[in-house]
Design a protein around this nucleic acid. Sequence first.
DNA 1: ATTCGTGCAAATGCTTTGCACCCAC
DNA 2: GTGGGTGCAAAGCATTTGCACGAAT
Lengths: 150, 150
Amino acid sequence: MNGSTNIEAKYQAYQQQHNLRSSKRRDFIFKHILTISGHFTIDQIYQHIAKIDPDIGIATVYRAIKLFVDANILIEHRFGDKKGFYEINQENFQEHGHLICRQCGKIVEYPIPEIKEIQQKKEREFNFKIDSFKVEFFGICRECLEKQKK
Amino acid sequence: MNGSTNIEAKYQAYQQQHNLRSSKRRDFIFKHILTISGHFTIDQIYQHIAKIDPDIGIATVYRAIKLFVDANILIEHRFGDKKGFYEINQENFQEHGHLICRQCGKIVEYPIPEIKEIQQKKEREFNFKIDSFKVEFFGICRECLEKQKK
DNA sequence: ATTCGTGCAAATGCTTTGCACCCAC
DNA sequence: GTGGGTGCAAAGCATTTGCACGAAT
């Protein structure tokens, strides 16, 4: 089973559980987010879709993305900004965290395989059913450190 | 050296570096946040301070808290909400992460001593100067799981 | 027919900012 | 006196929502 069928199954299951009607716009947004690697914002999605389907409203994008977050298809991040960042919660993607530079805002991804073990430990310990995680480090990146020296 | 002198030193250093003047209000907010364990919101601080100093404006609280975040005295969290949550970034506090129930919104803290090692590894690997981190797990808590069964 | 999905614009809620005034240096 | 600190109200910005209409069942 590859990643996208896995996610599609999740979407279909969610649609059934919530008695959703089929919607071309929502399906189109869904297909589009599958093609994105890394993070994106609502506005990026909206800009892209609006080129192909100019009548779409940004509210529809908000509603769709919110639904995908609820369905645990997407993970929402707020890296200190007020704006939301989203990324696919694909189980067979590499587990990763984020390094955020608080000076230039750059976001670097890094693999963090250690997290699975910690997650399982916490699940047992707190009797929580965990379905996503975030590991974020904040600091100053090399480039900004060098700029400071000058 | 205990935790609060550590933080006070951080505050003083920041004040000097940024040529801040002394401010009774900012200092009072500073002292107040030191007494709080766990997370708080801007509004909670404002409500508390306004009882003692009714003339204070909420903008002052925002400005002070933002400054403390910039000084790395506070860590800002956004647990999916639009509202910001804050907590002290006290180095000799126990390193901890958060478990967030996406159903009832409950936030549980847990120790995560493993993180220091990971942090150091990433610092070396990416040449980042890391000064704070977040580890968050999202899922459904025991109580909500039990409610679902019924 | 009924109810969900959508566009639009208004509303919301947190946060920031411009301005006039006050206060520390 | 100069420039930071503050209260107030207005503005900003991302996000949500009420409403009327169109589309799916």
